[in-house]
């Protein structure tokens, strides 16, 4: 359950940003998560909902941009599933390379401020 720690860091960072801009509510939070992190979306959302209760981030829309990991054949370049990286590629090669991101980045927030017209 590293999702709880991630949700806490997400909330803290979003709240700090909102405070810096004098926001009264955080409408949307966008983040980028690399596949290497093996984050369970459901757990992350649940943890965030619980932690954000009663704060100006309560009810924020959390949009996640996932960066998937890939195993790639070193000869023909085709992408295979993790379960096939142990086998031989259809081109005959057994050389696979792994590409994965461990990004965990709060990319942007949409803030509602006092001087908002709407």
């Amino acid at each position: 359950m590293h999702e709880l720690s991630i949700a806490q860091a997400l909330l803290d960072t979003a709240l700090t940003t909102a405070a810096e801009h004098g926001a009264k509510r955080i409408a949307t939070i966008r983040l980028r998560i690399g596949g290497l992190r093996q984050v369970v979306e459901e757990s992350l959302r649940q943890a965030f909902d619980i932690l954000s209760e009663g704060s100006i981030a309560e009810g924020s829309v959390v949009r996640i941009d996932w960066v998937p990991s890939v195993w790639r054949c070193g000869v023909c370049g085709c992408v295979v599933g993790a379960e096939d990286a142990a086998d031989t590629c259809s081109c005959g090669s057994r050389e696979f390379s792994f590409e994965g991101s461990d990004d965990l980045v709060l990319t942007s927030v949409d803030l509602e401020c006092d001087d908002d017209e709407d």
Binding site: T17, H21, L31, D110
Partner: peptide, 15 residues
């Protein structure tokens, strides 16, 4: 509504 670019790594505190 105001969109703010943040681009902050969430592991900073732990690091």
């Amino acid at each position: 509504m105001m969109r703010i670019e943040v681009l902050k790594r969430l592991q900073e505190q732990s690091e």
